[in-house]
Amino acid sequence: MKQIFKRISWVQILIWLFLLIVLLFTITPLVFMITSSFMTSKQIIRMPFSWIPETFHYQNYIKALQGNDGAWIFPRNILNSLIVSLTVATTTVLIASITGYGIAKFNFKGRNVIFMLIMATMMIPFEAIMIPLYMVATGLKLQDSYAGLIVPFLVSAFGVFQMRQYLTTFPSEYLDAARVDGMGELSIFWRIVFPNCTPVIATLGILSFRGQWDNLLWPLLVTQSEKMKTIPLYISKFAEEKMTDEGAMMAVAVIASLPMFILFGALSKYFIGGSTLYDSRKG
């Protein structure tokens, strides 16, 4: 007991102080977002800022969903973001796992070349190919459609890499046993390999979902009509008109963040696991 007491020195107090100051810095803007989403514009820009809303100004949320023009386009934009993010997460997980499985567990000619080529695409930043991709999308008449929003992100090289790394250690005996039992290759993948990839599936799924939920650049290029736009575009439009209503803008921000907070609360392990990995295809 005496020893423990002795060890708590002023250095440790300083460390704690420093950690707490940074904590304040990271957390207050988020708290600000939530509290001010229940305030009137007048209260938000009042000096000094009062952290507890005096009134529960829920009208901000109605205004957020309704939009400044009252066209109720935001719900549609949320739906678009959900459709795009969920589809991309699904296809990324499926295509990455089957490709990773093919590369990790089969001996075919050119296997290493294929793997190297896929890895090489990680060096191509999306920002450098967005203009040609835009030309491809317009060439295929995909502009302003879900297909156009989704197609460039169907799978990521990073996902293939993750899956391959994970499946290299998968015991081949299981596969051989299944083959001896007369199982087809596709059903071996679907019924034995895929269900055993859950940790990578979760990490990769979240990473891809976030990537699209956050993507501003590509939807900016490929969509034209209001009803095809996604959440980030709606927010940027709101930012342009922000002087009209700050509270509503924060309500938009809260609504846009809600799915992410829920995912983070439920699956923070995979969230953080995914964050330590580098993804070059993030928009």
Binding site: V22, L23, T26, I27, P29, L30, F32, M33, R210, W213, D214, L216, I231, P232, I235, S236, F238, A239, K242, M249, M250, V252, A253, A256, S257, M260, F261, F264, F271, I272, S275
Partner: peptide, 16 residues
């Protein structure tokens, strides 16, 4: 707690 800001999208971060 330090990681939480990374959860929200960069557009939301800029808006805040």
């Amino acid at each position: 707690a330090y990681y939480t800001p990374a959860v929200i999208s960069s557009v939301v971060a800029a808006a805040i």
